[in-house]
């Protein structure tokens, strides 16, 4: 059974400064990626792909210094 999504959302909220960065946790539907949840506000910066598997893609804006930490949490959550 899938873990509740709020678990990872809560964890990422502690890492991301919502005034400076944005995380978009999306689910894949073919070529379309649909938002599951967003943390932070758009910084109107280029999106970086933080994590991808066959089901999810996670994008981030202005997250270079916390990218590895975010990825680690996501991998742990999706185990």
């Amino acid at each position: 059974m899938e873990k509740e999504i709020y678990i990872i959302k809560d964890k990422l909220e502690k890492i991301v400064d919502s005034k400076k960065s944005k995380i978009n946790f999306t689910k894949k539907y073919g070529r379309r990626n649909e938002t599951v949840f967003v943390i932070g506000e758009s910084q109107y910066m280029e999106s970086t792909k933080i994590y991808e598997d066959d089901k999810y893609v996670v994008f981030g804006e202005n997250i270079e210094d916390i990218k590895d930490e975010i990825k680690k949490e996501i991998v742990e959550y999706l185990k």
Binding site: N24, T26, R31, R32, N33, E34, T35, V38, S42, Y44, M45, S47, F59
Partner: peptide, 25 residues
């Protein structure tokens, strides 16, 4: 086709109403 591939759809597309969106994306 960037918006729907980055999750910028539906209510999240409402960011579109901010001037930064057009200039940035």
């Amino acid at each position: 086709t960037a918006c729907y591939r980055l999750g910028r759809t539906g209510e999240h597309f409402m960011e579109f109403s901010k001037p930064g969106f057009i200039h940035q994306f």
